[in-house]
Design a binder for these strands. Structure first.
Lengths: 259, 259
DNA sequence: GCCTAGGTCCCGTCG
DNA sequence: CGACGGGGCCTAGGC
């Protein structure tokens, strides 16, 4: 694949690859890819300056840079799941040659941020053309726990009735608001993993926002388990904990044992 | 680069590339790369099953998969900063050929998780050898705000003195614990961005944990700004807000105006 | 290992 | 837009 072919009118190539390209060739391939909504994959030795919500400098080293058609820019080093530097979607990316180095610059405003990658060596560039794809289907979210409780409120306790979901208050949104068999109002806070201190604070805050309106306002946190410190705070605050594992909320799980 | 060369004893290649490889060739290159701590970069049409903390299925589509020497596996689609699927560092990755498809499987235990990528087509594979690199230097963190206040406590207010940093309580860790000019104890909670409801809850929680030990225990939240609801809650709880922008905490900033 | 809290968190949702 | 809270959050730091 020669550079001259980039702008040919035939069906665009799914993959364009260049190994140890010259600065000029790299520049042309990256600029072509940016213009044509391609996904770019650069492996090279580079240093990185970032200035924005925070600021950082990363000394020269081998990294993998990905530029997506939506403006996202991601730089990975050899370890860890998180990129070492990045720019979010809708960033504006451009390539330059400066002082004989290839420079990739990514900017956005609001917040104002700038990421500058200076390559002293490029080992390879892949320019890819991904087709559209389906959305992922994810299960076992907190939302599903809510769905289950809406459908089967007796899981919380006998006689429990739903009043409102995602109820807004001055101090945030209550997952589920309901009442028990004695007509006491109940605030339910759902968590899909082990309850920690901040979760209790959150529930307490919601309770505070409504206690002027109700007597006997109960607060119940629902989750698979709870940490020791959180349990202590829970008791002190006279809140309650109900055990419910998110995997039980998958559709089709047999819940007759709860009845 | 032929497959036979993979195991040669000469200096390993920085980059090995294969365009539209056969299943067998892809298998060999990936297996070789997994064994030799190389970073692998696969562009192909695949479907993905995940089962673990949650569960998901992703229908076939074009994606970019990265496998790092530390076991990290990342799958990107054409948009967004976040990978659509992943496995964290120290996952165990292996490659297979099953029903004429290439299958990449990544597992970890604790929590038990399994990610399975089935490729129906592979457009390209890059196998890379990144060298070690320096750590990133990041500025404007909450920690730096703390450093500044330790050094110049008068930024909080005239006469303020530090007692302890990262003070542990039953209900969490206080950023800075100190006393004012009247010997009242002061809890300082630092935030690098706009204060929200949960930040106030956090400070309130710390105050609660110590109020049995002190009279006149003040709570001060420090940050660049505060949301309206958070400000209301702040006043109700008789807590205080002090404005301090994290960028002021960069080394070398002139702070004489505060004195 | 558990627990706590920050993050250039990202991201969706709702006002 | 801001604001709020979830996330397979990830990651670092204590204990």
């Amino acid at each position: 694949m020669s550079l001259e072919d980039f702008n040919s009118s035939s069906k665009p190539d799914k993959v364009i690859y260049s190994k140890v390209p010259s600065k000029e060739k790299a520049f042309n391939l990256i600029e072509f890819s940016l213009k044509n909504d391609r996904l770019i994959d650069i492996f090279g030795k580079c240093e990185i300056d970032y200035e924005g919500r925070a600021s950082s400098y990363l000394a020269p080293g081998d990294r993998l840079t990905i530029v997506k058609p939506d403006g996202t820019l991601i730089v990975h080093k050899r370890e860890k799941r998180e990129p070492v530097n990045w720019q979010p979607p809708k960033s504006r990316n451009k390539v330059d040659i400066s002082n004989e180095n290839l420079v990739l610059t990514s900017r956005r405003r609001k917040p104002k941020e700038k990421l500058e990658i200076t390559y002293e060596k490029i080992f390879s560039i892949s320019s890819l053309l991904p087709e559209d794809e389906k959305e992922i289907q994810l299960n076992r979210s907190e939302e599903e726990m809510g769905d289950l409780i809406i459908e089967k409120p007796w899981i919380i306790e006998k006689g429990f009735k739903i009043i409102e979901r995602e109820k807004e208050t001055d101090l945030g949104y209550i997952d589920i608001f309901g009442k028990d068999k004695n007509q006491n109002r109940v605030i339910i806070e759902l968590k899909r993993k082990k309850i920690s201190l901040s979760d209790i604070s959150q529930l307490k805050r919601y309770q505070k926002s409504l206690k002027k309106d109700y007597n006997n306002l109960r607060g119940v946190i629902v989750g698979p388990s709870i940490s020791k410190k959180a349990e202590n705070l829970l008791k002190e605050e006279k809140l309650e904990f109900t055990k419910l594992k998110p995997e039980v909320c998958d559709l089709g799980t047999d819940l007759t044992e709860f009845q």
